[in-house]
Amino acid sequence: MGTVVDAPAVVAEEVTENMLGGKKVTAVFVLGGPGSGKGTQCANIVEHFGFTHLSAGDLLRAEIKSGSENGTMIENMIKEGKIVPSEVTIKLLQEAMIKNENDKFLIDGFPRNEENRAAFENVTKISPAFVLFFDCSEKEMEKRLLGRNQGRVDDNIETIKKRFKTFVESSLPVIEHYNSRDKVKKIDAAKPIPEVFEDVKTIFAPYAPKHLLALPFPSFPLLSPLG
């Protein structure tokens, strides 16, 4: 993988036309291997910077529980560590953005591959402001995943190994694509949670609510390093 740019975030230009009924949005893709801490840090970005967190995985799991005709197919693919078809995930993300009153979104765990990326931009006409990439070793991510107890079907050693392989083969090319456009902000996700959030705050400073700019951030909550 080439050199990833570690630069302050720049507020992206507004999207003038998209497939969200004309709604103008700022979208940030949040990518990183399973267990890299994306979920924990997204929760803090939501709290401090006013974004809405859209987890592709959570949306898919909710679809499974809903009993829809896509649910069984999605469940089987997740168990196999495979990637769900783009049109399924994009439709769920699109509906979530339209229904939500906010105009700033963290899209977590998507796009998972280049086909996802191209389809998302073609269908929604939305290009991300930037990609937040949580960089973490497989050894550390495996330790985190095996240590959490959420009852998820994809938290066993065999599936974890498949997910790591899928991430390296499929998701790293997406990061390279946006890196070539100076849109990747890399975070060292192996560091302690408070230190990771300090890096996150620097990147998201341009999005801080104006009334909070002069205030110190509150003490960091005790959250588990999951993603």
Results as ranks from 00 to 15, higher is better:
54 L>I: 12
126 I>T: 00
112 R>Q: 00
205 A>M: 14
145 L>S: 12
128 P>D: 05
175 I>F: 05
214 A>T: 06
40 T>L: 04
100 N>C: 10
79 K>D: 08
40 T>K: 04
72 T>F: 09
69 E>H: 13
103 D>M: 01
191 K>N: 11
81 G>H: 10
30 V>M: 01
65 K>M: 14
111 P>K: 08
161 K>S: 15
165 K>T: 15
215 L>P: 03
41 Q>R: 07
150 Q>D: 02
137 S>P: 12
98 I>D: 00
42 C>G: 10
99 K>P: 03
109 G>N: 01
72 T>R: 12
101 E>D: 15
79 K>Y: 05
96 A>C: 10
43 A>E: 15
152 R>Q: 02
36 S>L: 10
152 R>I: 01
51 F>Y: 12
207 Y>T: 03
215 L>H: 04
56 A>C: 09
99 K>R: 12
98 I>T: 14
65 K>G: 10
215 L>F: 07
20 L>N: 01
215 L>R: 13
215 L>D: 13
22 G>Y: 08
104 K>P: 04
106 L>W: 02
183 K>Y: 02
10 V>L: 12
83 I>P: 00
49 F>K: 03
206 P>N: 11
30 V>D: 02
19 M>V: 13
36 S>A: 15
97 M>G: 10
208 A>F: 01
63 E>I: 14
31 L>N: 13
132 L>Q: 00
156 N>Y: 11
56 A>E: 09
103 D>K: 05
115 E>C: 03
186 K>M: 15
141 M>R: 03
205 A>Q: 12
60 L>H: 10
94 Q>V: 06
148 R>W: 06
50 G>A: 11
130 F>N: 04
52 T>C: 00
198 E>W: 01
213 L>S: 06
215 L>E: 14
198 E>G: 03
113 N>G: 07
112 R>I: 00
162 K>Q: 11
32 G>Y: 02
224 S>R: 15
61 R>I: 06
50 G>M: 11
176 E>P: 00
116 N>R: 11
182 D>L: 14
21 G>P: 02
173 P>Y: 07
216 P>E: 01
218 P>K: 04
152 R>L: 06
68 S>E: 09
197 F>K: 03
157 I>V: 10
146 L>C: 06
179 N>K: 03
210 K>Q: 11
194 P>V: 00
184 V>P: 07
161 K>F: 11
28 V>D: 00
190 A>N: 13
156 N>K: 12
27 A>S: 08
32 G>N: 02
139 K>S: 14
96 A>S: 14
97 M>R: 11
